[in-house]
Nucleic acid binder design. Structure first.
Length: 273
DNA sequence: CCAGTATCCTGCAGGC
DNA sequence: TGCCTGCAGGATACTG
């Protein structure tokens, strides 16, 4: 479900809703998520801690607390963080519930269980296997300089390369397709067959599409919602993602769709080369 | 090291 | 209507 703009939308909502709140208790059921969810361990650590301003790294959320430590959250494909009154009905696949001192609860819901919620001690963050391997933040102003050399010596399709979180952290299937359409680059084009100038253009379109999507609160296709239950509105701005068979908004050609690297990909066969 | 594929899991849309 | 198949916003283990 969530890519950088959706995760950033969640981060901002949590910044205003749970910043300063204290955890009073933890309940749930340990299940096999991407990393095992250990409710008992969280119940031993979190009560009494206060949430600080949350951070985002790529598609990861870091819910920092005082005393120092962080709950590392990834939403996977179907993860949702809810902030709801304690009396709110329980959604299916709610795995862990943090009761807060304002009468509300922070709930982690994840039907497909590709997400995670694990505790990080202050020292754990630097050498965490996921966080440590992440590439640059795509909104970094130096992206147009740093991206080309990472791509120019690779033969894989550019679409697969910009989805690789070790190179750039935060782009997913929707925004990869959108950024490539804006840049006029064919998603199957090999990285080493794209000029530095065109890669700099791609860096710019990546930043534009992510920034616009954040401003719209992300993209809601099926079930993405902010912690207070709202939808994102960027779906109406999508130019190619999910538009296979429809006309390109730029040139009128029919948008194509095929799997690249196992992920469905849409592009315009006329204006993407 | 790199590129490509399989896999984890549930829900839901579409075809028959 | 019900059953079956395939696909879904992701990350990673594995294969050649």
């Amino acid at each position: 479900m969530p890519e950088l703009p959706e995760v950033e939308t969640v981060r901002r909502a949590l910044a205003s809703e749970v910043c300063g709140k204290r955890v009073t208790s933890v309940r749930g059921e340990s299940v096999a998520l991407r990393r095992p969810l250990e409710v008992e361990a969280l119940a031993a650590i979190l009560p009494g801690r206060r949430f600080l301003e949350p951070r985002r790294r790529g598609k990861f959320l870091l819910l920092d607390t005082a005393p120092t430590g962080s709950l590392l959250v990834h939403l996977g494909m179907s993860g949702v963080v809810q902030i709801v009154p304690a009396a709110a009905p329980l959604r299916a696949h709610t795995h862990v519930i943090l009761e807060l001192d304002d009468g509300r609860e922070l709930r982690f819901v994840d039907p497909r269980r590709f997400g995670m919620a694990v505790w990080l001690e202050p020292g754990d963050e630097a050498d965490d296997s996921s966080l440590g391997a992440l590439g640059m933040e795509p909104l970094d102003p130096r992206l147009s300089q740093t991206l080309p050399p990472l791509i120019r010596n690779r033969r894989a399709p550019i679409k697969s390369l910009i989805l690789d979180q070790h190179l750039i952290a935060g782009i997913g299937n929707i925004y990869a397709a959108e950024a490539l359409w804006r840049a006029g680059i064919h998603p199957r084009r090999a990285g080493n067959r794209i000029s530095v100038a065109r890669l700099a253009t791609l860096a710019t379109t990546i930043q534009e599409v992510l920034t616009e999507a954040i401003a719209e609160g992300g993209t809601t296709l099926r079930d993405f919602a902010t912690p207070d239950g709202n939808s994102g509105y960027f779906a109406v701005s999508l130019q190619v993602y999910g538009r296979q068979g429809e006309p390109c908004q730029r040139c009128g050609a029919t948008i194509r769709g095929e799997a690249i690297g196992g992920r469905t990909t849409a592009w315009c066969p006329r204006c993407q080369r």
